[in-house]
Simulated assay, not measured.
Amino acid sequence: MRRPALLLLTGGLGLAVVFGLLQLTRRQAEVQPQVPSPVVRAPEAVAALGRLAPAGDVRRLAAPISGFGGTPRVAELLVSEGESLRKGQVLARFDNRPQIQADLAGVQARLRTRAAEIKLQVREVQRYAKAAEVGAASLVLLDEKRDELLRLQGEQQQAEAEQRKLMADLANSELRSPLDGLALRIHTREGERPGSDGVIEVGASQAMGALLEVYESDINRVRVGQPVALTSENGGFKGTLSGSVTAISPQVRQRQVLSTDPTGDADARIVEVRVKLDPQSAQRVRSLAGMKVIARFSAQ
């Protein structure tokens, strides 16, 4: 008689356990696991080193070639780096200028003499022509006077051509600025003979900009029109300059602007990026071409 009761009790207990397990499973199924959302990082801004440079025209001015195929030495250097220039301003004079001036003076003196001789010879020809008309002079003598006049006129033309050449050489014995701008860099000093770099570089500084060197690994995050903030690496100017990217070079080059960090890699490969400064920023650094800057491109 006790066995059925025990079975009933045991069966009831088993049902309770099963029912509890089912409830627990259902609650676990209802509770969805919370998967954390992926963290989206903001794109890092690109930084680069560079230098201030005129955004306009830059000219490298060479010395003239002398008549012997060489170049004269610089006798006088009349400007210094960073100086503002105006179009037509004399920047330097060469040591061949005194010789050209002497040769020109000699040619001009010869021209004055020939002009006087031609004037007299014209009168002589007219006089002999009248005499030949009345038989007082032979036609042969008249032809000789005319030939002499032609010779003097030919020498005058040659002297005039020589004078034009010397005038051109005299103008080239002075180096003048071809534009309003700034003396960027002087390659040849007084007493030196200019080499392949010329005498001086001048730039149109009315629109100042910057030439930046972006690592080739970062160039894919730089675009034309992208805003750029510039600061001086060594405190050459205070605050921040504003500008925007105007051009990206299609060529990868070796780094030229080195950091003050001694661990900087001088062999790094970079892409040149040109930036034009806003008018207010350009005015602040108008006379600071060549100054090293740190650029930070706005994150895209």
Rank of each mutant, 00 (worst) to 15 (best):
M1E: 07
R2A: 13
P4A: 14
A5S: 10
L8Y: 06
T10H: 08
G12V: 12
L22M: 10
E30M: 05
V35I: 14
S37G: 10
R41N: 11
P43G: 07
A45I: 01
G50V: 06
A55S: 14
G70F: 02
P72K: 09
A75M: 13
V79G: 02
E83S: 14
L85S: 07
L85P: 02
R86G: 04
K87L: 06
G88K: 09
L91F: 12
D103N: 09
Q121M: 14
V122Q: 15
K130D: 12
A131Y: 11
G135Q: 03
A137H: 01
E144R: 15
R146V: 08
L150H: 12
Q156S: 12
E162I: 00
R164T: 11
K165F: 05
P178Y: 06
A183Q: 07
R185D: 00
R185T: 10
S196G: 03
D197T: 03
I200W: 00
V202F: 03
A210F: 09
L211E: 15
E216Y: 09
S217T: 15
S217D: 15
D218W: 09
N220S: 15
G239L: 11
S242T: 14
Q254L: 13
Q254V: 02
E272H: 04
E272N: 06
V273W: 02
S298F: 03
